[in-house]
Design a protein around this nucleic acid. Structure first.
Lengths: 110, 110
DNA sequence: ATTGATACCTTGTACCGCAAGGTACTAAAA
DNA sequence: TTTTAGTACCTTGCGGTACAAGGTATCAAT
């Protein structure tokens, strides 16, 4: 129960930075959805498909991302997402916003 | 529009740590709702009444907070909230969770 | 032809933040 | 003594979003 509570807290915190995380990963390398999920999981950010797909679509519609189809040797084709310049710009803004929040919490918890 | 976008991002990030912020402020001093809003605003965390009241009630129902009524010389009585020991315990857990996320983003953005 | 693996996507539910509106108490002005 | 202003409490309705669950499609191997 307390365990559950803290898990809730964690996922709520993660939620707030999910978009930031996705753009960050894509800034390093283009990726398709399942790959993104794996890379985020490695970074201890849990995302499921039902969350990610609509989110990627939203970001694409905002002009932050584009995608291209690529054949795969082992299964259906993959939709590789990559950052647009608008996406890169927003990522820089996010860096600032994030820095500000980290500072704020440093002060609040001092 | 881009402005709007970054404001959205910021508030989404803040949202993820709202409960953490509230417990942090109450850890320093008991406070009533309007006072909490002011203190958070000073820390650049914007919260409105319609957000805060239900949130405080939720946290109280989870046993993280208690409150007491206190008369005021200039208006209606005030509901002062304070942390319970359960709330203090959770706050320590939140510290860990927060630290973890900050580290994660350091790595992701490196 | 069927199974398993991989990859895409949608639907329904539940939660939560926020704008807006509402109630109640106190003190001071009209 | 009614009204106004200030303070503080709380609720309602809307919209957005994460997530569980379920669905479709492709390829390779049995």
């Amino acid at each position: 129960m307390n365990e559950n509570n803290i898990e809730n807290i964690k996922s709520q915190m993660r939620r707030g930075v999910l978009e930031y995380c996705i753009l960050s990963v894509l800034d390093k390398n283009d990726a398709y959805a399942s790959e993104l999920i794996d890379q985020l999981k490695d970074a201890r950010i849990i995302v499921v498909e039902g969350t990610l797909y609509p989110l990627l679509t939203r970001q694409k519609n905002q002009g932050l991302l584009t995608y291209r189809w690529e054949e795969s040797t082992q299964g259906p084709p993959r939709k590789y997402y990559s950052l647009t310049s608008k996406g890169r710009d927003l990522l820089l803004e996010m860096d600032k916003a994030w820095k500000e929040i980290v500072e704020t919490l440093d002060i609040l918890r001092k």
